[in-house]
């Protein structure tokens, strides 16, 4: 098989037309005007194919032959030369290209809807507690300064609820804060800071078991690392977008906003409810008190928008039933 090419010695830009003859593994002849080279396939390197761009046969000492006829070269070296043509094979086959598009779309969709949850869960459970503590503390300071007001609750009532809170398993890991200003609300941060509002305490109308249930539910979110999972998920998307677009400035802002605007999924709510139910039972409190709270919440005027963090707590029948089930 003969292949035509242009020989460049690597010292000047002068092109020499040459003819390449591959006889077998050991004899490759390169001939042109004033050029006669005998070499072996072991001593030369043939570049991989990219589209229909000229291929390079690299000889000793920077000398190179440019070959434009890719098909002729492929045919000439087939059987002798095992260069990696795999990438070109993938790139030039229509079926593989179509499959690539499909797999790409599916994997992107899978990642968005499911894969990211699993990765986030794995990371959240394996993160050092120092990180949780720092993020939670910062987020709490931020929310406290921007959105919350000091509680106006009587000191005795605060003590009463603190005593209630002390009944929890490992209550020392958590700090209860009394605040007001964001409606009927309670939330917990990864650092163990738990906030309960005056409005919620008033709403319970003295039913301490109900407050106990709400607190247990919030501790459930912390125990199951729900907010950490969401923070990780939000930053993962940020990192991915940053990686592909080259813009990393948006990354920094996603974190804080994801803590503040945390909306838990149904799955997370179910987990927190289950945790609360178990804790209540253990402490001798009837779980129906938490169910009562959800019922009461859903009966409130639907136009009431000040519920804030509870927007993501759809008090539906399913959850109430789950709590009431033995």
């Amino acid at each position: 098989m003969k292949v035509f090419g242009e020989y460049f010695d690597g010292k000047s830009s002068l092109a020499h037309p040459v003819e390449i003859t591959i006889i077998d593994d050991y004899v490759v002849m390169i001939a042109g005007e004033g050029i006669s080279i005998k070499t072996t396939l072991d001593d030369i390197y043939i570049s991989s194919r990219v589209g229909n761009t000229p291929r390079l046969i690299k000889l000793q000492e920077d000398a190179v032959i440019h070959v434009s006829d890719n098909d002729a070269l492929d045919e000439a070296i087939s059987g002798f030369w095992h260069i990696s043509t795999s990438a070109h094979k993938l790139e030039s086959r229509r079926s593989i290209v179509i499959i690539s598009i499909a797999i790409m779309l599916i994997s992107v969709l899978y990642f968005i809807f499911d894969g990211s949850d699993k990765v986030a869960k794995m990371l959240a459970y394996n993160l050092p507690s120092v990180v949780e503590k720092k993020i939670g503390t910062k987020a709490f300071e931020y929310i406290d300064e921007e959105m919350l007001e000091p509680s106006k609750l009587k000191k005795e009532r605060q003590k009463e609820i603190s005593a209630l809170f002390a009944k929890f398993d490992g209550a020392k890991e958590y700090t209860l804060h009394f605040r007001r200003g964001i409606g009927i609300n309670a939330f917990a941060l990864p650092s163990g800071d738990i906030v309960i509002t005056d409005e919620l305490i008033e709403f319970s109308e003295g039913n301490n078991d109900m407050i106990f249930g709400v607190l247990a539910h919030e501790i459930g979110h912390v125990k199951r690392k729900h907010s950490m999972q969401m923070i990780i998920k939000a930053s993962m998307v940020g990192i991915l977008v940053g990686y592909f677009t080259g813009d990393v400035s948006t990354l920094a802002t996603t974190l804080m906003s994801s803590v503040v605007q945390a909306k838990y999924s149904r799955e997370f709510e179910r987990e927190a409810d289950a945790f609360a139910k178990e804790t209540m039972k253990k402490s001798g409190v009837d779980p129906k008190n938490l169910a009562l709270f959800f019922e009461k919440m859903s009966k409130k005027e639907p136009t009431h928008t000040e519920t804030g963090y509870f927007d993501s707590h759809p008090a539906n029948q399913e959850r109430i039933d789950a709590l009431l089930a033995p």
Partner: peptide, 19 residues
């Protein structure tokens, strides 16, 4: 001398393998 169709194959395989 590049062609859209030819480069599309290279590009999509690149994106896929990168992912």
């Amino acid at each position: 001398r590049g062609k859209t169709g030819e480069f599309f194959g290279i590009w999509i395989v690149n994106v896929f393998l990168t992912i």
